[in-house]
């Protein structure tokens, strides 16, 4: 294990290598079966991601312990995070971190989850694209901004759920351009997509893999991508970033994993190592490519800093759109 880490050593990995080395001295595997607690139902993206990781960790022989992905769904992931928060120091349960884990406490006025759990790893990021209906007069993000400036609130977004990633992004867009956009929440992302496909609204935010389908089948017209750079894929190469179009918004959706509060640092370090190793496998890279996600393998304290920053964005935007309690 050490040898492989060292041979991989490149300048870019130096920082995390050092952290890995420091932790390597006291790494300890948990014993017994492991539960990955997921707050979404079976089929939600957090669920799919954790099942993929569980599969890779077992199939590649990285983790010997049997892993079960358990859906403790409902109530904005609070069933899941309250379960894990109640297991202080437990070594056999990990919590999946998706945006509701950050936003539900802010919306409901309960203590932050991220501040309590032990951060382990950032698993994947997904860029977001804004689409409009194929026959729409909008051809760029500027057209949208112009329309929203002229008639505040007249541009409508069919969204996933209140406080979800697309709602946050709508809020960021409103702040950056000084406009008002009507966000219409739905029961789920796919319910929002049905409203969009039915031609009832102007805009819809989608992850790249969702957008790929909509663009290729001609049921959606991409206007902008909210990342720092354009995507290399042929379908998206012509989609300009929001920044290129003069709207300073960069936002990515992300998923991570954490342990209960007071998790033994040695166990946390062991998990961080395993997840990092999983992201380096060919199996993971293939999966990443299929889903057009992005890897950003941060672990432990680095991941914690990333999560804290994400939480701050969520809190700022939710306060601005009046959802924070």
């Amino acid at each position: 294990m050490f040898r492989r880490t060292f041979t991989l050593g490149s300048a870019a990995l130096c920082a995390s290598l050092y952290a890995g080395l420091a932790a390597a001295q006291d790494m300890r595997a948990p014993t017994g079966p492991i539960e990955f607690t997921v707050g979404s139902g079976a089929g939600g993206s957090p669920d799919v991601i954790m099942r993929t990781f569980a599969q890779i960790l077992s199939e590649q022989g990285l983790v010997e312990n049997p892993i079960v992905v358990q859906n403790r769904s409902g109530a904005g992931h609070s069933n899941a995070y309250n379960h894990v928060l109640g297991l202080s120091g437990d070594e056999n349960t990990l919590l999946t971190l998706a945006s509701p884990v950050f936003t539900t406490p802010i919306v409901q006025g309960t203590p932050s989850v991220i501040d309590q759990i032990t951060p382990i790893a950032l698993l994947a990021e997904s860029e977001l694209i804004v689409l409009t209906t194929p026959d729409s007069a909008f051809n760029s993000l500027q057209d949208v901004v112009a329309a929203a400036t002229e008639a505040p609130g007249r541009v409508r977004v069919a969204g996933g759920s209140s406080g979800g990633n697309d709602h946050i992004l709508t809020g960021l867009l409103e702040t950056a351009t000084g406009t008002t956009i009507t966000y219409i929440p739905h029961e789920s992302g796919s319910a929002g997509r049905a409203t969009f496909l039915g031609g009832n609204v102007e805009l819809h935010f989608a992850t790249l893999s969702e957008a790929l389908e909509l663009v290729q089948s001609g049921s959606g017209k991409p206007l902008a991508i909210f990342s720092a750079e354009r995507r290399p894929e042929e379908v998206f190469a012509n989609v300009a970033t929001a920044q290129e179009q003069g709207v300073d918004v960069v936002y990515t959706q992300f998923w991570g994993v954490g342990g209960p509060a007071n998790l033994d640092p040695a166990v946390a370090a062991w998990w961080a190592e395993k997840f990092k190793a999983a992201t380096e496998t060919a199996q993971f890279q293939t999966w990443l490519g299929e889903n057009l996600y992005r890897a950003n393998p941060l672990t432990l304290a680095d991941a914690g800093a990333y999560f804290a920053e994400g939480q701050q964005t969520f809190r700022d935007v939710l306060t601005q759109i009046g959802l924070a309690k």
Partner: peptide, 16 residues
């Protein structure tokens, strides 16, 4: 929704 998830887990992208 769970059927769709199974497709995604098997590397198939559902859509139009």
């Amino acid at each position: 929704a769970i059927l769709l998830a199974a497709l995604i887990l098997h590397g198939i992208r559902p859509g139009p």
